[in-house]
């Protein structure tokens, strides 16, 4: 692998990030960087603050202090939708599809950020509007094809199987054409074979779409297949980072997962 983080300037820099919920410190002085096209794994015991980190990065909640730099631009005060427009897309740990809408409509809503017509053009449905609408419908279909869920295009998203829902969520995030994809436990609830398919799909996506990824996962095999580097969070602090091999032997990581050794 030709990846060398030191040589390229990072696309995402998180520095001294903190988040308190009332008195509870959920993220404590977290700093890390992400290189272009890197896939960074994030692991940690339940309640470590992984999802909270994603919520901070995607603008759903605001940090108590600290900075998030995206291409050297501070984004920690931006709203969720502004951050999407800057190229960070995410999926949710507890799937948040538009359940009553069809699979196609789910994708189209995401694709809508590429449409340029103005409200007036929309109300009068000018030629531009019609053309863009047509294009977006086609592009959405093509994306479904990539994920091989074309046959489900007109099913309500809520009726899909769990694995398909997870894949649809990833497809929906990809329709935003992000430069960074935040995946929150994408393989949760999947069986072994579905999981391997998903690893392959993600590998392929990473290559073809040139997206960077932040990946929260509890399955080490999954992380292993995709990520070059992994962060370990425990009680909101970064306790270790490096390759999986390095982490596996880290004393603090073992303690965090297995409890402190009795001396």
């Amino acid at each position: 692998m030709d990846f060398t983080p030191e040589k390229q300037s990072p696309i995402l820099e998180v520095s001294l990030l903190n988040k308190n919920f009332g008195g509870m410190r959920t993220i404590i002085d977290l700093s890390f960087e992400l290189a272009p096209k890197e896939c960074l794994g994030i692991i940690g015991p339940n309640g470590a603050g992984k999802t909270t980190l994603f919520n901070l990065l995607s603008g759903i909640i605001r940090p108590s202090s600290g900075k998030i730099l995206w291409f050297h631009q501070e984004i920690q005060k931006k709203s969720s939708s502004e951050i999407v427009h800057l190229g960070i897309a995410r999926t949710f740990q507890n799937i948040r599809l538009f359940k009553q809408l069809s699979v196609l409509e789910n994708i189209r809503i995401a694709y809508d950020i590429h449409l340029t017509y103005t409200p007036l053009q929309a109300l009068l449905r000018t030629a531009l509007t019609r053309e863009e609408e047509k294009k977006s419908a086609q592009a959405a279909m093509e994306l479904l094809d990539v994920f091989s869920i074309t046959s489900l295009a007109h099913q309500p998203a809520g009726s899909l199987s769990y694995g398909d829902q997870r894949r649809l969520e990833i497809a929906r995030a990809l329709a935003l054409h992000p430069r960074l994809l935040l995946l929150d436990e994408p393989a949760a609830g999947m069986n072994e074979s579905e999981m391997y398919q998903l690893v392959e799909l993600l590998q392929w996506i990473q290559k073809k779409f040139h997206v960077s990824m932040l990946l929260i996962e509890h399955h080490m095999a999954f992380i292993n297949g995709l990520c070059d580097r992994t962060l370990v969070l425990d009680f909101g602090t970064l306790i270790a980072q490096g390759t999986l091999e390095e982490i596996r032997h880290d004393r603090r990581v073992i303690e965090a997962y297995l409890g402190e050794a009795v001396t």
């Binding site: 948040r96 538009f98 809508d112 409200p119």
Partner: peptide, 29 residues
């Protein structure tokens, strides 16, 4: 009819289904 079948129409339907997900899909709620 035009409004509902435009991107804003889809946005408000997305807001109805799940406002947070809609924001996360770039919908300026």
């Amino acid at each position: 009819r035009h409004f509902i079948h435009s991107k804003w129409g889809r946005s408000i339907i997305a807001i109805r289904e799940d406002e947070i997900a809609a924001e996360a899909m770039g919908v300026s709620t």
